[in-house]
């Protein structure tokens, strides 16, 4: 597979990325250095990095420098490939596995999910009630206006109204002013 632009190989436990160099690549000193840095710093899913180069040139490389940075060295010719320096496992390169989840956090999440579900239902219910109220308010307002008009026809007499004293605070005035209206209310 390709890993961050380098070929990579896995033995099941680890994945190693390999920078392969040819004789032509090493004609230029800058290319060698660039290849070594690329192999050491390339991000990816691998946890080991190797530089592979021909046997002919391996003697010109100082192996300790590679060991210090954790790079492995593979040498090859027409017949074989050998691991001259093993690569060190680089923990920074291993993608962090998800930490084990605390059961109390799981419970908390479940609780919050339940709470959200309840809140969602409450919001829906409130929406429905507001809608019903909106539908109900108009006719009620109209009814109140009608009642107010009826009552306005029979005002409660005041001391100065000129009506006899037995009209004062008489509850029958409002009772009787509704006569003939009760059926209308029931019908509506």
């Amino acid at each position: 597979m390709d890993d961050g632009g380098l070929p990579s190989y896995s033995n099941g436990e680890h994945r190693a990325a390999v920078k392969i160099l040819s004789l032509e690549d090493l004609e230029d000193r800058n290319i060698l250095l660039q290849s070594l840095l690329e192999a050491a710093s390339k991000p990816g899913s691998h946890d080991k990095a190797y530089v592979a180069m021909p046997k002919l040139l391996a003697s010109a490389i100082d192996g300790r420098i590679l060991e210090d940075v954790g790079l492995g060295l593979l040498i090859y010719d027409e017949r074989s490939i050998e691991e001259a320096i093993p690569a060190r496992i680089n923990p920074r390169r291993i993608q962090a596995a998800p930490p084990p989840v605390d059961p109390s956090v799981t419970r908390e999440i479940q609780f919050l999910k339940a709470e959200i579900s309840v809140l969602r239902e409450t919001v829906e219910k409130l929406k429905r009630e507001i809608s019903l109220l909106r539908e109900g308010v108009k006719p009620r307002l109209e009814e109140k206006v009608r009642e107010a008009r009826i009552e306005a026809n029979v005002p409660s007499p005041s001391q100065s109204s000129g009506l006899p004293s037995f009209f004062q605070d008489n509850p029958w005035l409002s009772v009787l002013s509704q006569r003939g209206r009760e059926e209308e209310k029931i019908a509506s």
Partner: peptide, 18 residues
Amino acid sequence: WRGCVIYGYAVPEDYEWN
């Protein structure tokens, strides 16, 4: 008589005999 007068004053004029 007093009850009659209150009744006549309060009952709406448009309420027809039933």
